[in-house]
Amino acid sequence: MEYIYAALLLHNAGKEITEENVTAVLKSAGVEVQDARVKALVAALEDVNIEEAINRAALAPVAAAAPAA
């Protein structure tokens, strides 16, 4: 989830989520950055309304399954 947190951090800091910025944040946390994952992240977020996506509950199937037990 590091990549996601990096994106959220940038978003909250009012910075653009670019490959460069994400890479910088990850490196600062000592993460060995995989370029492909950064690219994938930035590409996936391009058309996403982050504010909305953050606040929209995504049911975790795991969680959901739990009550069934």
Binding site: M1, Y3, I4, Y5, A7, L8, A40, L41, A44, L45, V48, I50, E52, A53, I54, N55, R56, A57, A58, L59, A60, P61, V62, A64
Partner: peptide, 30 residues
């Protein structure tokens, strides 16, 4: 709260991670 935000973002934007891939699949199936 921050963790659930990250989880939501990962699932809603379909950015697969180890932690969320199951939920993403679940979402697509649903």
């Amino acid at each position: 709260f921050a963790a659930s935000q990250a989880f939501n973002l990962s699932v809603n934007a379909a950015i697969p991670t180890r932690l969320t891939i199951g939920a993403i699949i679940g979402r697509a199936v649903s």
